[in-house]
Simulated scan of single mutants.
Amino acid sequence: MKIPFHSSERASLGVEWELQLVDRGTRELTAGAVEVLAAITPEGLDEHPKAKHELLQSTVEVITGICSTVAEAKADLAGTVAEVAAAADARGLDLMCAGSHPFTRWRSQEVSPKERYVQLMERMQWMARRMQIFGVHVHVGVRSGDKAFPIVNALTQYIPHFLALSASSPYWSGCDTGLASARTKVFEGLPTAGLPYQLADWPAFEEYMETLITAGAIESVREVWWDIRPHPDFGTVELRICDGLPTLDEIGVVAAMAQCLVEKLDQEIDRGYTLPTPVGWVLRENKWRATRHGLDADIVVDDKGTVRPVRQAIADLAEELAPFARKLGCEAELADVERVLAGGASYQRQRAVAAAHGGDLRPVVDSLVAEMRSGLPRRA
């Protein structure tokens, strides 16, 4: 089975941001995407070019065009979000983003009226019905499928870095899960989600996809929802590990890290280096540690079991990527890593708000709505 990889301009960038629609009175996650999207879709088009349905009618996915810099991607998102926010406001709805809603129960949600989502629900049943989760996906362009899989394999060692920075789903249906990212464990319930298979090259990927399709496990490559995956149609490596992020500032951080890392690994291939493929047990352990402890995790850094704080690993990575950030024009966005480390990831900020209000989770929703409007909080 041949799967064409449509080459992209090196280090080009695209971002997908899944937004929650919440009722201004109850603060509950609320269906409204059909009306909001209809209101902003240009006349003569079937759908808005940069705002789409997702699985639930309480979600609007905002996507960028093909961008060259992180600043361009942020500006692209901001323009579309402003359109969505105005239409939502007219219907008594606010926008926010986090990996999960703090207290809305998944049974209350309506599925979007698109055939692919109806079919997904039929096939996956309970596993799909629980998918009241939200993420940020970052695409970085590469020029060939031959590079895509070595880069995917090498990027997996940074899964705990991205997950710890973006973790924003400590609550599920009104309960504190004790996790930094409950979304991660919910999403892993789908049979083709989670850590990517470590495949040697593009032909091995084509063979594996053909096997899955022949076996009836999937109908197309689009149904493989790995944490990091190649996207043949876009010609990108796609990082899907991040929880939904409340602010454009935090999106800038993870987009800058992703763009710089892919550029770094791409250069290493050009210089004849063989990119590392991390040990499987280390990947699973580190993903769990970031899921459970977020920025307080100690991650495994070799196959001997040596550990170090993920905070330090993130800070060191940002320093290592600084020359690539200068080249790609994302120095400011990469530098915002320090703001997240100092002020806390979203899961920490949410818990602080809940603690300040005696465990009431409605103010947590208010804080997430405010962050989307105002940006990453600055420390006093």
Results as ranks from 00 to 15, higher is better:
2 K>M: 13
3 I>Q: 07
6 H>Y: 13
7 S>T: 14
7 S>W: 08
9 E>F: 10
12 S>V: 06
16 E>Y: 08
20 Q>C: 05
22 V>F: 04
23 D>I: 04
28 E>Y: 09
34 V>R: 07
35 E>L: 08
37 L>A: 00
38 A>T: 10
38 A>Y: 00
43 E>G: 00
46 D>I: 02
52 K>S: 11
52 K>V: 09
57 Q>M: 14
57 Q>D: 13
58 S>A: 15
66 I>E: 11
67 C>M: 10
70 V>G: 00
70 V>M: 00
74 K>F: 07
78 A>C: 13
78 A>K: 14
80 T>H: 03
82 A>H: 05
83 E>M: 08
84 V>W: 00
86 A>V: 10
88 A>P: 09
90 A>D: 12
91 R>K: 12
91 R>Y: 05
93 L>D: 06
93 L>A: 01
103 F>G: 06
106 W>N: 12
107 R>P: 05
109 Q>K: 10
112 S>F: 02
115 E>P: 04
119 Q>S: 10
120 L>E: 03
122 E>L: 06
127 M>C: 03
128 A>M: 07
130 R>Y: 06
132 Q>P: 04
133 I>V: 15
135 G>C: 11
136 V>I: 00
137 H>C: 01
138 V>R: 02
146 D>Y: 08
146 D>V: 11
147 K>H: 15
157 Q>V: 12
157 Q>H: 09
159 I>K: 00
160 P>I: 07
161 H>P: 07
162 F>C: 01
164 A>I: 00
168 S>K: 01
172 W>M: 02
172 W>A: 00
180 A>K: 00
181 S>H: 03
181 S>Y: 06
183 R>F: 03
183 R>I: 08
183 R>A: 05
184 T>K: 10
185 K>S: 15
195 L>A: 13
198 Q>D: 12
198 Q>P: 08
205 F>I: 05
207 E>P: 00
209 M>D: 12
210 E>S: 15
210 E>G: 11
219 E>K: 06
221 V>Q: 11
225 W>I: 02
225 W>N: 04
227 D>Y: 05
229 R>H: 09
230 P>R: 01
233 D>R: 14
234 F>N: 13
235 G>M: 05
236 T>G: 04
236 T>K: 01
238 E>H: 04
240 R>N: 04
242 C>M: 11
249 D>K: 03
250 E>Y: 05
257 M>K: 06
259 Q>S: 09
260 C>N: 09
264 K>T: 14
265 L>I: 02
270 D>M: 04
274 T>V: 14
279 V>D: 11
283 L>W: 02
288 W>P: 02
288 W>A: 06
289 R>P: 04
294 G>D: 08
301 V>N: 01
302 D>H: 03
303 D>F: 10
310 V>W: 04
313 A>Q: 12
313 A>N: 11
315 A>N: 03
317 L>M: 11
319 E>R: 14
327 K>R: 15
328 L>I: 03
329 G>E: 06
330 C>N: 11
332 A>I: 11
332 A>K: 13
333 E>L: 05
335 A>P: 01
345 A>H: 06
350 Q>F: 02
351 R>Y: 05
355 A>F: 06
356 A>Q: 14
356 A>H: 09
356 A>S: 15
363 P>T: 12
365 V>L: 13
367 S>H: 14
372 M>K: 06
372 M>A: 10
376 L>C: 05
377 P>L: 12
